[in-house]
Amino acid sequence: MLKIYGRDNSINVRKVLWACAELGIEYLHEDWGIGFRSTREPVFLGMNPNAMVPVIDDDGFVLWESNSILRYLVGQYGGGALYPAAPRERARIDQWIDWQASDLNRSWSYAFMALVRKSPAHGDAQQLAASIENWSGFMRVLEQQLQQTGAYVAGDAFSLADIPVGLSVNRWFGTPLARPDLPALAAYYELLTGRPGFRAFGRNGMA
């Protein structure tokens, strides 16, 4: 049986848990990381020398990096509807998965640590303002995309891209800040709420 290692209040672990819900995959889950067993323990480092969650072990196949895990799960467990084989359809999905990881995540890091985690190391007002402005800019990019699709991030059907992007949208609405009016984004948030996996590991999960 698939085993998932990582605390379920981690946005990256919740990607994997949500994907399993979408695909109907049974799994065993162990909490590792902040507040739980240390990822610096030798047994964990033996699975991921980076000491980061999540990690999966699928009958001896060990894999880390959350987006790589998502792609593996749809390939291994019949998720073709979420991640089509057609190169152009797949590339569009990959574009938004990679955008979430490389651009969007970087923009909200400082603001999230300051406003939600209340980190003493993130108390600089100028850096906080810059982070919020940058974050808002990327959410406007997403707003434009959702206005074009009228539904999900990569098109009119739910895809693998909606898992990482949807969790970032949850983080946006869960952070106490002044947000611009983005109606397509708000509609997308409500659309995702209709999915049991998002209700379990997104909107009602811990930020």
Results as ranks from 00 to 15, higher is better:
residue 7 R to H: 01
residue 181 D to F: 00
residue 92 R to D: 09
residue 173 F to D: 13
residue 103 D to L: 01
residue 85 A to G: 14
residue 12 N to C: 15
residue 198 F to G: 04
residue 200 A to M: 05
residue 200 A to G: 11
residue 102 S to T: 13
residue 108 W to Y: 05
residue 207 A to R: 08
residue 106 R to V: 07
residue 17 L to E: 07
residue 156 D to M: 02
residue 53 V to P: 06
residue 180 P to D: 05
residue 34 I to A: 10
residue 8 D to L: 04
residue 69 I to M: 15
residue 102 S to C: 15
residue 174 G to L: 05
residue 60 G to L: 14
residue 184 A to K: 08
residue 172 W to Y: 08
residue 165 V to E: 00
residue 54 P to Q: 06
residue 152 Y to Q: 13
residue 140 R to V: 05
residue 207 A to Y: 03
residue 199 R to H: 10
residue 141 V to M: 09
residue 192 L to R: 02
residue 49 P to G: 05
residue 45 L to V: 09
residue 90 R to G: 11
residue 97 I to M: 11
residue 180 P to F: 03
residue 44 F to T: 01
residue 166 G to H: 00
residue 93 I to K: 02
residue 165 V to Y: 00
residue 173 F to P: 14
residue 95 Q to A: 06
residue 40 R to H: 07
residue 139 M to D: 08
residue 168 S to F: 05
residue 187 A to E: 12
residue 33 G to S: 15
residue 114 A to R: 03
residue 63 L to T: 07
residue 114 A to T: 07
residue 84 P to W: 06
residue 121 A to C: 00
residue 86 A to R: 15
residue 151 A to H: 10
residue 198 F to P: 01
residue 177 L to M: 14
residue 67 N to Y: 01
residue 18 W to V: 08
residue 68 S to F: 01
residue 172 W to S: 01
residue 206 M to W: 14
residue 132 I to W: 04
residue 100 Q to H: 12
residue 186 A to D: 15
residue 163 I to T: 03
residue 191 L to T: 03
residue 162 D to M: 13
residue 206 M to T: 15
residue 21 A to H: 03
residue 79 G to F: 07
residue 205 G to V: 07
residue 129 A to P: 13
residue 200 A to P: 09
residue 201 F to A: 06
residue 163 I to R: 01
residue 37 R to L: 13
residue 32 W to L: 06
residue 80 G to V: 05
residue 185 L to T: 12
residue 1 M to K: 07
residue 146 L to S: 01
residue 120 P to G: 12
residue 117 R to L: 09
residue 23 L to G: 11
residue 133 E to H: 08
residue 10 S to V: 03
residue 182 L to W: 06
residue 51 A to E: 10
residue 205 G to D: 11
